[in-house]
Amino acid sequence: MSVTMDSDLATAWEVTVDDAPVALSACDDLVAVAGAEGTVRVLDAAMGAEIGALELPGGALSVELAPDARHLVVTGPMGYALWRRADGRVTVRENGSWSAAAAWADGDRVAVASGRRALVLNPDGGELWRSEPAASTVTDVAWMRQGRRLAVAAYGAVQGHERHTEKPVVTYPYIGSHLALAVAPTGKWICSGNQDASIHIWRTRDGSELTMSGYPEKVSRLTFDETGFWLTADGAPDVTVWDFSGKGPAGTAPRSLRCHETVTALAWRPGAAGHLASGGDDGTVALWHATAGRPQALLRPARTLDSGDSPVAALAWAGPHLLVTALRDGCVRAYGVSSRAAL
């Protein structure tokens, strides 16, 4: 691994890793980069220097730092692993189960998709409880109600589990394959991006449903901003941004953000300004005032960053002033964004 510093003030640091990145996570003063072959590098967010590393046999699919940045979990096709910052301890669970995703409830509990179950673990890998088997492989997990309820997505439904309950206490049915979950920070909405090129929405208060269909491609990236009023999704060359304020998006049209031929990464900037970063397979990173204009508006980027010819693999904000980008060729670059109000 090599580290170089860019003289351009817009570039805070640049690192080259020797495993094609597939996922990024940023929290507090750390950035974690997971590679396709299972190598995870933990970097100092300010300078890009490596402070830790681990390997997950069988490859990696996702990586998540804990909210307090004291632990990390990485998941992959053959299992998962946890890393402890204090002493670099690594706990590997190579159990042969497809582990697509993980989500931290807080610094003390993390949910991991593991085959047809969701496992809830302490930071050292001790199992606290597990969900009953789903109908198929669990594809995503997300915490609700400030970590008091776990949403588990598998074919045919999203199941809600209260803390320590193996059996679901609520079921949100949808006949299809869920690829991604997004839960509004307000707890008001659960959304799934689906293999059938749709977004399905449940209002948690009463279980009422809404489907946004007609996407030309499957919807595999789906994320709410910090306010919970805006949802962004891929599934088309244009990024779509849906307004969830008030009564929600029923009967409305999204804003469309046009820049990439194929969207490969999405990341909301922390805060309420409506700033979004997107990445494409052409190596372009676009920065957006994503909530500007009216429904059906076609927006153009506030700024684009030409990162090179390699596709953008992942994006993450390390706080509101540092955007981290990872390219498929192993280049990881951090850009300084000085003002909360400007891009």
Rank of each mutant, 00 (worst) to 15 (best):
G88S: 02
G228H: 01
R303L: 07
V31Y: 02
A12C: 05
L54V: 13
L299H: 01
V324F: 09
P168Q: 11
M47D: 11
A253D: 14
R328A: 15
H275G: 01
A197G: 08
P67E: 00
A314C: 08
T223W: 04
Y172E: 06
W104E: 01
Y174P: 03
H321V: 10
D29W: 13
Y215E: 03
G76W: 03
C191H: 02
S7V: 02
G251I: 15
L323A: 03
A53K: 05
V239H: 00
G35D: 08
S62G: 15
L61F: 05
L72F: 04
E162N: 12
G160H: 07
L82T: 00
Y172H: 07
D309F: 12
A10V: 13
T227Q: 03
R340P: 05
G251M: 14
D234P: 06
L210T: 07
D8L: 02
R145K: 13
Y335W: 15
V31D: 03
L82F: 10
H289S: 04
T204N: 07
T264H: 12
A36L: 15
L56K: 12
D68N: 13
W268L: 09
L222I: 04
V17L: 15
A49H: 13
D124T: 09
T304H: 09
S131A: 14
D281S: 13
D238R: 09
A10S: 14
A290I: 14
R269Q: 06
I199D: 07
D28G: 12
A60Q: 04
T186E: 13
E55L: 11
V3E: 14
Q159S: 08
T264G: 14
R84L: 15
A154R: 06
P123A: 01
A105T: 05
A277N: 15
S2Q: 08
R149F: 00
